[in-house]
C-alpha cells in the first residue's frame, strides 16, 4: 500500500487535479491509439479509484491491479468496482517480469516510497524497451528532499543571500549535504553539473525529473524501432511532494502522435513540470473566480501563495476546468 493512500482523494485536491491531467491526456490519445483495447496496469490502493475512472472515461476492460500487502489485496478484491479488474498479489516489478504483453499497455508506476528512487527510475526506464510500441507509461516519484536523510545539525553550516555562518568553510549546507546523498543514490544517473540549489523543496522535484529523463534517454539509445514522446510532467504536494511524468512509446518515424501531444493544452515536459498547487477555496470564491476574468479585483483580497511559491490566481486559471468539486454526501 502506498504511504499516502490512507488519505482519500477528496482531501488531496492537487493529487486529484494531477490525476485528471493524466486522464485528459489519455482521452486526447484514445481515438488515435484505440486505447480501449489497451491493458491498464496500476496500483489501485484499497479503493481502486483510478481503475473506476479509467474504465469510465476510456472504456478499457482489461485491467490489472497490483498490490504487495495481503490485507489490502483482499480489500481490493472486495471493493473491486468493475468485474473485469484482475487483482494480483505481487510486486509490480515481479508482475512485469513474469508477464508477456500481447497488446500495448498503460502502466502507472505509482511509487510513493522515497527509498529506492534509483531502482524505481531504472525500472521505469527499462520498461520503455519491453512494452509494445504505442504504450503509455507514467511514473510518480516522491519529491521530498528530506527523504535523502537528515544531517546532524552540528555537521551543517548555513548560508542565505550572501550571509553565512562562521563554519561555512568547513561544513556543507543542508542542500550541499543532500546533493552528496543524491549523487550517491543515483550513481551514474546523476545529472552532471547539478548544484546544491537543485536540492531545495522547490527545485528537488525538477532535479529528480532530470535524472528520470536521462535514464530514459539512455535506455532509448538501445532501441532503434521506437522513440519517446514526453507528454505530461507535474509537481504537486498535498503534504508529501510528488513529481510525475508520462510518456508515449512511439514508432521511430511517428510524427502524428507527437503532434497530437504537442498540441495539447496541458503538454509539459520534464524540464518544466506543471506546478499543481491549487488554493483551498470556498464555493463562492470558486464560482467568482471561474466567472470573472479579473477575480482578484472583484474579490478585493489576496489569496495566500502556495508552498511552491505559485500565484494562486494563475494556478487556478490554468486548471479550473479539471479542478474537482468535492462536497459532502451523507449515506
Amino acid at each position: 500500500m502506498s504511504a499516502g493512500s490512507s488519505l482519500p482523494y477528496r482531501l488531496r485536491p492537487n493529487k486529484a487535479v494531477d490525476r485528471e491531467l493524466f486522464l485528459s491526456l489519455l482521452m486526447r490519445l484514445a481515438p488515435r491509439l484505440t486505447l480501449e483495447k489497451y491493458h491498464y496496469i496500476g496500483l489501485g490502493g484499497p479503493f481502486l479509484e483510478d481503475f473506476r475512472m479509467i474504465h469510465g472515461r476510456i472504456g478499457i476492460a482489461k485491467m490489472t491491479c497490483i498490490e504487495t500487502e495481503e490485507q489490502v489485496h483482499k480489500r481490493q478484491i472486495f471493493n473491486r468496482p468493475i468485474a473485469s479488474i484482475e487483482c494480483v498479489h505481487k510486486s509490480l516489478e515481479d508482475y512485469l517480469d513474469e508477464t508477456d504483453f500481447d497488446s500495448p499497455t498503460i502502466i502507472w508506476f505509482d511509487y510513493t516510497e522515497p527509498k529506492g528512487i534509483t531502482t524505481q527510475i531504472e525500472r521505469f526506464a527499462r520498461t520503455i524497451g519491453t512494452v509494445q510500441i504505442g504504450s503509455i507509461l507514467r511514473i510518480t516519484l516522491n519529491a521530498n528532499p528530506e527523504s535523502l536523510g537528515k544531517p546532524d545539525p552540528k555537521d551543517i553550516s548555513v548560508e542565505a543571500e550572501g550571509d553565512v555562518s562562521e563554519d561555512r568553510a568547513q561544513k556543507p549546507t543542508t542542500q550541499e549535504w543532500r546533493l552528496a546523498r543524491f549523487k550517491e543514490r543515483l550513481g551514474s544517473l546523476f545529472p552532471s553539473g547539478l548544484t546544491a540549489d537543485g536540492m531545495t523543496h522547490k527545485n528537488y522535484g525538477r532535479s529528480l525529473l532530470r535524472a528520470l529523463k536521462l535514464a530514459v534517454d539512455k535506455e532509448a539509445l538501445s532501441f532503434r524501432d521506437r522513440r519517446i514522446v514526453w507528454a505530461l510532467a507535474t509537481h504537486y504536494a498535498d503534504g508529501q511532494a510528488m513529481v510525475t511524468a508520462a510518456l508515449v512509446v512511439c514508432q521511430n518515424d511517428d510524427q502524428a502522435i507527437e503532434e497530437l501531444v504537442k498540441g495539447w493544452e496541458f503538454n509539459s515536459t520534464t524540464d518544466a513540470p506543471h506546478r499543481v498547487a491549487l488554493p483551498a477555496l470556498s464555493t463562492l470564491e470558486r464560482l467568482t473566480m471561474e466567472s470573472h476574468a479579473d477575480a482578484r479585483t472583484k474579490m478585493g483580497f489576496d489569496l495566500p501563495k502556495s508552498d511552491m511559491g505559485e500565484n494562486p490566481f494563475e494556478v487556478f486559471k490554468k486548471f479550473y476546468r479539471i479542478y474537482p468539486h468535492f462536497s459532502r454526501v451523507e449515506l
Binding site: 527509498k115 529506492g116 534509483t118 531502482t119 552528496a180 546523498r181 549523487k183 550517491e184 543515483l186 550513481g187
Partner: peptide, 21 residues
C-alpha cells in the same frame, strides 16, 4: 568526503551493487 560508515540503512541497496559516486 562521502557518507560515513555504518550508514547502510539505506533500503535503496535492494541487492548489492555500487551506487557510490
Amino acid at each position: 568526503t562521502g557518507k560515513s560508515l555504518g550508514d547502510d540503512e539505506d533500503d535503496d541497496a535492494g541487492f548489492e551493487r555500487d551506487r557510490s559516486s
